[in-house]
Design a protein around this nucleic acid. Structure first.
Length: 428
RNA sequence: GUGAUCGUAGCUCAAUUGGUUAGAGCGUCGGACUGUGGCUCCGAAGGCUGUGGGUUCAAGUCCCAUCGGUCACCCCA
């Protein structure tokens, strides 16, 4: 009986891992340009960190968390998302003493116990950013634009951006009462789930896929129409910044998102290339969260994107061109007598930053070439007893078949020269 | 958690109404005269047909269970 990965998890095999690293590299470069720095938090936290912040009535907390007790009887939870841990760290590490806003990014696995599906796993990877300390609508715009620009940077063209405003602690309770009254009056025409939602989580009433519910809710009061003056102004500013950058957006009043901590701006980016699990990134403002964790009243905003969904979308878009940066030089040993000398050269090349490899399978010369050629290695160095005697080796460029004789003591210099030429050309 | 669907070599797929030693392509490994790749040709390895039961003279093919994938719901990244 062979072992299999647990349900909803998967091995990221080398060919895929290379692509992920590429996606991550582009992200890190871009985040740096926007002034964000990395932060790494533990993969598990005290369960409270998530129940308090995400909200105890949410699906994530109610049925999706990997919660366990350790040998010291602590209740711990594998992180289902990245924002709460970062905010916990912000408070615990007194980052309010740093120049504000504090701009952070993270990457890593998240865990949710869900029914697996393409683009949805129990261990999944996210890349996220948080900007903590400013309520400037320009920061909201920066967050949204960073997400959009990143997707464009990795080659996505087909994207839809949805935005909404959840209001603040002043206008939300008023609105929820209004919404409850409306739904209560229409109680008879709503499905069972929605009737439950009236008291449990009225904002979710808009999410129901049931057609009659949707028609009923179409006429319901929208939070976006009942914002206080300050929230309305904030939202208008955000939209203005987006328009300045010619970024198309759709205002989606029913965009609520599954975490309770959001205030004001929320947003989500959807790829039409994917199936039902099409949200490749999303986020929002969380102006009460730092306080919730016992820190000073501090606003914040951030987003997270799903690495495997992004990879799927980029794949479907058709242009996942990752520079393979494969091995550059292969040392072909034509004669077992030359093996020691060959290994010596191998290490010399590597010490000079030339990526080089050699056969470890005891292959015939021909088989060595075949195997190395399949790996896409461009330069071959032939080394046998002939070369050892003459003190000169043959260097072959596999792209055009050209061969050249090079003295052994000049070989390293010769090859570093060739390889440097290539990387310069690639850089152009 | 609900409903549907699928599960044969590393990958993509075959296998007449249940009927003898389950096949192919790609990939992997080796070879095609003695020290030179890509193309071509030849050959080899690799499957207890996801797993466990059952029906039958006989099961990859039918039934049940279980595990896993996929699709939709739920939810979200």
């Amino acid at each position: 009986m062979q072992f299999r990965v647990p349900k909803g998890t998967t091995d990221i095999v080398p060919d895929v891992a290379v692509k992920w690293q590429y996606l991550e590299r582009i992200a890190v470069e871009l985040f740096k340009k926007y002034g964000y720095k990395p932060i790494i938090t533990p993969i598990f936290e005290h369960t409270e960190v998530f129940t308090r912040s995400i909200g105890s009535s949410t699906d994530i907390v109610q049925k999706e968390m990997y919660t366990f007790e350790d040998k010291g009887n602590r209740s711990l939870t594998l992180r289902p998302e990245g924002t709460a841990p970062v905010i916990r760290a912000y408070v615990e590490q007194n980052m309010n003493q740093l120049p504000q806003p504090v701009k952070l990014y993270y990457t890593g696995p998240m865990f949710r116990y869900e029914r697996p599906q393409a683009g949805r796993y129990r261990q999944f990877w996210q890349i996220g950013v948080e900007a903590i300390g400013s309520d400037d609508p320009a920061v909201d715009a920066e967050s949204i634009l960073l997400l959009i620009n990143y997707f464009k940077a990795v080659g996505l063209k087909e994207l839809a951006l949805y935005i909404n405003s959840m209001g603040c602690e002043n206008d939300r309770p008023q609105y929820i009462e209004m919404l409850k009254d409306y739904a209560e009056a229409k109680r008879e025409s709503l499905c069972n789930d929605c009737v439950k939602r009236i008291d449990l989580n009225p904002l979710r009433l808009f999410d129901c896929k049931n057609e009659t519910c949707q028609t009923v809710m179409a006429d319901a009061p929208k939070l976006i129409d009942h914002l206080c003056e300050s929230c309305r102004g904030h939202f208008d500013e955000v939209k203005h910044y987006l328009e300045m950058q010619c970024v198309n957006y759709v205002i989606k009043p029913e965009l609520v998102r599954g975490l309770d901590y959001y205030t004001k701006t929320t947003f989500e980016v959807v790829s039409p290339l994917l199936g039902a699990q099409n949200a490749i990134g999303g986020g929002g403002r969380y102006n009460k969260l730092v306080e919730e964790f016992g820190g000073p009243s501090t606003p914040g905003i951030g987003f997270a994107l799903g690495t495997e969904r992004l990879a799927l979308a980029v794949e479907k878009e058709g242009v996942f061109d990752v520079d393979e940066n494969s091995t550059e030089v292969f040392i072909a040993v034509a004669d077992p007598a030359a093996k020691h000398a060959a290994v010596n050269i191998l290490y010399e090349l590597r010490a000079k930053d030339v990526s080089a490899d050699i056969d470890y399978m005891g292959r015939s010369l021909k088989a060595q070439l075949k195997a190395a050629n399949r790996r896409g290695i461009r330069y071959f160095v032939f080394l046998g007893s002939r070369e050892l005697e003459s003190g000169a080796v043959v260097v072959k460029d596999m792209e055009n078949g050209a061969q050249e004789e090079v003295k052994l003591n000049e070989l390293v210099e010769y090859l570093t020269g060739l390889v440097a030429d290539i990387s310069e050309r690639v850089a152009d």
